[in-house]
Measured scan of single mutants.
Amino acid sequence: EPIEAIAKFDYVGRSARELSFKKGASLLLYHRASEDWWEGRHNGIDGLVPHQYIVVQD
């Protein structure tokens, strides 16, 4: 079951695997890939989301 998150800041992906998004964007998170990253989805694209840039919705 994906988790919803909201972007705290704009983020520009630094590689093809990283998602880019704007502050306030809604993201879906699948699972924690590491301490710093989530596997997630934004605008229909799957990729990595940096933990420091999002607020996970409970």
Rank of each mutant, 00 (worst) to 15 (best):
A25H: 14
K23S: 13
L48E: 03
W38K: 00
F9A: 09
F21M: 05
R32H: 08
I54W: 11
G44E: 11
E18G: 03
H31N: 04
Y30L: 12
S26P: 12
L27N: 00
W37N: 04
D10L: 03
K8W: 05
E18L: 03
G47E: 00
W37F: 07
I6P: 01
I3Y: 03
G47P: 01
A16Y: 05
A16P: 06
A7L: 01
G44H: 09
D36S: 13
H31R: 13
I54T: 08
P2C: 15
L27F: 05
D36F: 12
E1L: 02
H42S: 13
G24W: 04
L28V: 13
L48K: 11
H42R: 09
R41H: 02
G47F: 01
D36Q: 14
Q52Y: 12
Y53F: 13
H51N: 15
H31V: 12
L29I: 14
P2M: 15
V55A: 14
L27W: 00
S26Y: 09
W38H: 02
R17I: 07
A7W: 00
I54C: 08
A25V: 07
S15V: 08
E4W: 05
G47I: 01
D46T: 06
S20R: 06
S20P: 02
S34Y: 07
K22Q: 05
S20F: 02
N43G: 07
R17M: 07
Y11H: 09
I45T: 10
K23V: 06
E39K: 15
D58N: 13
S34G: 12
L19Q: 01
W38T: 01
F21T: 01
A5V: 10
G24L: 03
L27K: 01
S20G: 06
Y53R: 12
E39P: 01
G44M: 08
K23A: 11
L29R: 00
W38Y: 03
Y53Q: 14
H51Q: 15
A16V: 08
G40D: 00
W37S: 04
N43R: 10
D10R: 04
Y11L: 02
K23Q: 15
E18V: 07
E35C: 09
I6H: 15
D36L: 14
H31W: 08
A16C: 06
D10K: 04
E39F: 05
S15H: 15
R32Y: 03
G24A: 06
V12T: 11
S15Q: 15
P2G: 15
D36E: 14
A33S: 13
I3F: 09
S34T: 09
L48H: 07
W38L: 00
R17H: 10
D46A: 12
V49G: 00
S26V: 12
L28Q: 15
D36V: 10
L29V: 09
S20I: 02
A33D: 12
S15I: 06
S34D: 14
G40E: 00
L29F: 00
G13R: 09
D46K: 09
R14N: 10
A33E: 12
K8C: 09
D46F: 03
A25I: 03
D58V: 06
H51S: 05
F21W: 01
E35H: 10
R32K: 13
Y53C: 12
W38V: 01
L28G: 08
P2A: 15
S26D: 10
D46G: 10
